[in-house]
Write a protein that binds this DNA or RNA. Structure first.
Length: 495
RNA sequence: CGGGGUGUGGCUCAGCUUGGCUAGAGCGCUUGGUUCGGGACCAAGAGGUCGGAGGUUCAAAUCCUCUCACCCCGACCA
């Protein structure tokens, strides 16, 4: 196991981000195919935890999982003009099938009559099947989700944040009325908020995207936005009101109670492996990955300490008992009994992998029937004594506390890095150089102004916060043009 | 896709300017031994066609051309 140096956040934030990923063995660039990543077991285990949390909530709200083809006929993409334009540049295209060997060299064989795109998202092909499956209002609502990977041929890639292939879920639903579809859009947005805040311990702002930022082909796009430690925002998940746009494009119609034909009202919503990037950039520190217990693949690492063989058997026996008891409580416990490694090195390893709690069990601890506990997020090297008796209760309480502390810490950071601005020069200087925060400011509602602000400062409108979110205080004047503004919107640089 | 940078054992790098013995070091890895409460030590080993393909040359890690990948800054985007 190669020792991993982690650059400090202060020195080079981008390098720190990559170092944390390498040191925790979460993922690495595939190298053999531009922009693609390999998600290593520890990284995938985190994704599986996120999947489980989301999937359970999807099922509980009546959704079913399904799987649709990876390849989409090119013609499908042309059916919804705005959607096609939004994704045209970044589609990977399959033009051939089969290979042949010519003079020992592999060559392409049969050119396809109609090329296929590798799905960048599945609205089109799912629209096609919705048209087949939906005939009556009795078939609605149709509530589906698929877990899969998609491909967008990105020109600049970063592990988890932007890769050519990434993993996600995409929910697709069809409804008999716009009101019902809108209700679904918000139901799913709230599920994302719930998972972000209560599982990932990341505070988010719910909002609506501007017309300029919304999903190509949607009537409206809603999102949850999170703030990273460098002051940049990251979109955590999206939920789209597709209106009848795809219904029209794919002729998805149903007969309503009155006997009339109408196009269905659709939604789609998604959350990606990018979420792991958010986890890293919100919680982790200069010692490596920090994970909230609810998404940690390993909750507790037990490091036994011994000198003699007699001590070793005694200490291991006690450690195994503790591990078994904690596992009965549903915790994932790693008993690190590797012989060749000294305890200190094990501490560093589990720290950089983000294990929330470490228990040390040595001869002295066995004698006193206590273990030394070290939280991943405690400031000092101070350790806490926990008794063997009812250890599950103590460990459970510590893990709960860590979960709460992480959210509180992230929330405090967000509050400390959120400002209300009304002066254009203040706005400009805040975003000067690499600077960024959450800035609530007035905007006149035009795309022209939005783009002018971006041009001048690199800051973009992350969202128009929903009622009750953010720091809105009623109408005002646009920070750039002085034109009337209905409410403050959220600005930041973004990933 | 535009601008800049990088590519030498698993990792970090030296060597390249000015071509020349068998391509080195530290860490990691393997084996044996001593260790073990915050990154251990000793000894002996294994591991590289220098990102790839062409070219120049008696001779290329080193010079030239092309290409691939990665990183940074843009533009675009989950």
């Amino acid at each position: 196991m190669a020792e991993q140096h982690i650059t400090s956040r202060a020195q080079d934030y981008a390098q720190w981000y990559q170092d944390v990923i390498a040191a925790a063995q979460l993922a690495e660039p595939a190298g053999v195919v531009r922009g693609c990543m390999v998600v290593r077991p520890h990284g995938w285990a985190i994704w599986e935890k996120i999947q489980a949390e989301l999937d359970g909530r999807f099922k509980a709200t009546g959704h079913q999982n399904a799987a649709f083809p990876l390849l989409i006929p090119l013609s499908f993409l042309q059916k919804e003009a705005e959607h096609a334009e939004g994704f045209a540049m970044e589609c990977a295209v399959v033009t051939h099938a089969g290979l042949k060997s010519v003079d020992g060299k592999i060559q392409l064989k049969n050119e396809l009559e109609e090329p296929c795109v590798v799905r960048p998202t599945s609205e089109t092909i799912i629209g096609h099947f919705f048209a087949k499956w939906i005939d009556s209002y009795r078939d609605l609502p149709l509530l589906l989700n698929q877990w899969c990977s998609v491909m967008r041929w990105e020109l600049r890639t970063r592990l988890f944040l932007r890769t050519a292939e990434f993993w996600w879920q995409e929910g697709h639903t069809a409804h008999s009325s716009h009101a019902e579809a809108v209700e679904e859009v918000h139901r799913m947005l709230d599920i994302y908020r719930d998972v972000y805040q209560n599982v990932l311990a990341i505070p988010v702002v719910r909002g609506m995207k501007t017309p300029n930022e919304k999903f190509a082909g949607a009537l409206a796009t809603y999102c949850v936005e999170a703030l990273m430690q460098d002051g940049k925002a990251l979109q955590g998940a999206t939920s789209h009101d597709l209106g009848q746009n795809f219904g029209r494009a794919f002729n998805v119609t149903f007969q309503n109670k009155e006997g009339a034909r109408d196009f269905v009202w659709q939604t789609s919503w998604g959350c990606t492996t990018r979420t792991i990037g958010a986890l890293i950039m919100v919680h982790s520190d200069d010692n490596g990955l920090v994970l909230p217990p609810r998404v940690a693949p390993i909750h507790v690492a037990i490091v036994p300490i011994w000198k003699s063989d007699a001590e070793k058997s005694q200490v291991l026996e006690a450690s195994q008992k503790i591990a078994a008891e904690l596992r009965e409580d549903g915790l994932v416990v790693k008993l690190d009994d590797r012989d060749a490694m000294r305890p200190g090195e094990k501490y560093y390893e589990w720290e950089r992998k983000g294990v929330p709690l470490r228990l040390e069990v040595g001869p002295r601890d066995v004698a006193s029937a206590t273990a030394m506990a070290k939280s991943r997020i405690s400031d000092s090297k101070e350790k806490l004594k926990v008794p063997f008796e009812n250890i599950g209760v103590h460990v459970g309480a510590i893990l709960d506390a860590i979960q709460k502390q992480l959210f509180a810490r992230a929330l405090a950071f967000r509050e400390a890095n959120t400002v209300k601005l009304d002066s254009w020069s203040d706005f400009e200087s805040l975003f000067a150089d690499q600077g960024s925060k959450y800035v609530y400011a007035h905007w006149d509602g035009t795309t022209a102004t939005e783009l002018a602000i971006k041009e001048a400062t690199k800051a973009t409108i992350r969202c128009i916060p929903l009622a009750g979110e953010g720091l809105d205080d009623g109408p005002g004047k646009c920070i750039k043009t002085g034109a009337p503004s209905r409410q403050r919107v959220l600005f930041a640089k973004n990933y």
